[in-house]
């Protein structure tokens, strides 16, 4: 690389850095205590299509008009998924403003479609909270959504018909706004009360 191209790269990096910091400082209307709020950097979801636990199509239209929290896991998951769904249920119960409760939908998306069907998901999400929705799709359709959200997942140790394989997956909870845009992220560990306050702030502000 010659000197002038180094200078151009450095200049671009500087401009990029300034734009990002300007963007962050000028478009941060909400401070969250438990998560990241993307502000104006919220970005539209791709044209994804899942099937929910009632057998209904779930796509961008389904998410439009409500705030959605989405967690990705699998029902054979003994530790993280039950703990996170319990947290989400505790969070939902801790929201005091009925308008906030009405505005928020909570989704559990299985990234293990081979073992999790609509029936399994219905029983599973209902166990934690009858208001939750379970959903999944074939892997190709799932990754269209998860890759756009930066949610990593991977099936491991699956040899032949071995039914007890592991599914590694992100523990983050994704926030989607009523325009069906990826609007924020709650990373683990999750505090249900702090998340309830954050959601209240988000819904009441917007």
């Amino acid at each position: 690389m010659n000197k002038s191209s180094i200078a151009i790269v450095a200049l671009l990096a500087l401009i990029g850095g300034f734009s990002i910091s300007w963007y962050l400082s000028s478009n941060k209307p909400i401070e969250l205590e438990a998560g990241l709020w993307f502000g104006e950097q919220a970005r539209a979801l791709p044209d994804f299509e899942l099937v929910d636990h009632h057998g209904q199509v779930m796509d961008r239209t389904t998410l439009s008009g409500n705030w959605s929290l989405m967690f990705f896991g699998y029902t054979h998951c003994p530790d993280i998924c039950p703990a996170t769904l319990q947290t989400l249920s505790d969070m939902a119960n801790a929201i005091e403003d009925p308008n906030v409760t009405k505005a928020v939908r909570i989704y559990f998306v299985s990234v293990d479609p081979e073992r999790d069907n609509a029936e399994t998901l219905a029983t599973y999400v209902n166990y934690f909270n009858p208001g939750f929705t379970g959903a999944t799709a074939v892997m190709e359709k799932l990754t269209l959504l998860t890759s756009s959200l930066g949610i990593a997942h991977n099936i491991r140790n699956k040899a032949g018909d071995n039914p007890s394989y592991d599914v590694d997956h992100s523990s983050a909870i994704v926030l989607i706004n009523p325009q069906a845009e990826f609007a924020g992220l709650f990373s683990a560990p999750h505090d249900p009360l702090a998340m309830a306050r954050d959601l209240t702030r988000i819904v009441e502000y917007n």
């Binding site: 003994p78 530790d79 991977n154 590694d168 997956h169 683990a188």
Partner: peptide, 13 residues
């Protein structure tokens, strides 16, 4: 006995 560990942006056991 299992341990949940964070690796490559994922939780694995």
């Amino acid at each position: 006995i299992h341990q949940t560990i964070a690796q490559d942006g994922m939780m694995r056991m």
